[in-house]
Amino acid sequence: MNASAFPQAGHRLYVIVGPYGSGKTEVSINLALRLAAQGRHPALADLDIVNPYFRSREKTAMLEGAGVRVIAPDPATAAADLPALPAAVWQAILAQDLTGVLDVGGDRNGARVLAGFAGKIDEQTPAVWYVLNRTRPGNQTVQQALHSLREIEAYASLRVTGIISNTHLLHETTAELVLDGAAFAREVAALAKVPVAGYAFPRALTDGMHGLHPQLPLTLYMNRPWEMNMGEMI
């Protein structure tokens, strides 16, 4: 297998967890689009019941156009912040002809929704990835990050199987910051006794990232309103 292929192993189910602001939704969307391009029939389930804005369900039209099935609350309640999930989440978890991607809400409270599904999720031998961003308060030391990872595991009743390094400052992300975050992710991974499953970074920085494998260059979709339809950022 190509050392830089992403995702490395062909899991049937990917569970994306992590603190608020770690970049779970961008990682989930980019992963789902990549799986679609690989012909693996991804189903992206938006399990975020803790955030009222910036949820993957907002990108349903784009995702479905690219061949990603989106499982999200019924349109009648999609704009609410009700702690309710559609039954179709089970399809992402169980349907053997689909590759499931679960985009989970932030922190331990966001991860709590997984507990009810955990037994069935485990049976799929899933990839459970903890997305790590060192610029977020509460994730700045190895001990803090490990604590947050273990807490999410406890609330989700699932074991994390890999770390996605995604240290970023949105549009102020530099190559230096990404590489510093990558080294940090390796330290956290070593202590957690799991591999770094992937290194994510803004696509524009790809040239400086030859040393990172496997890698997931990100196209950012969850833009703020003044970044829409303009092809430029401020």
Binding site: G21, N133, T135, P137, Q140, H168, L169, L170
Partner: peptide, 15 residues
């Protein structure tokens, strides 16, 4: 001091 990524509501609380 290096920059940190904060959510608006949390940052207002910390401020």
């Amino acid at each position: 001091m290096s920059k940190e990524l904060w959510k608006g509501n949390e940052a207002i609380g910390e401020a």
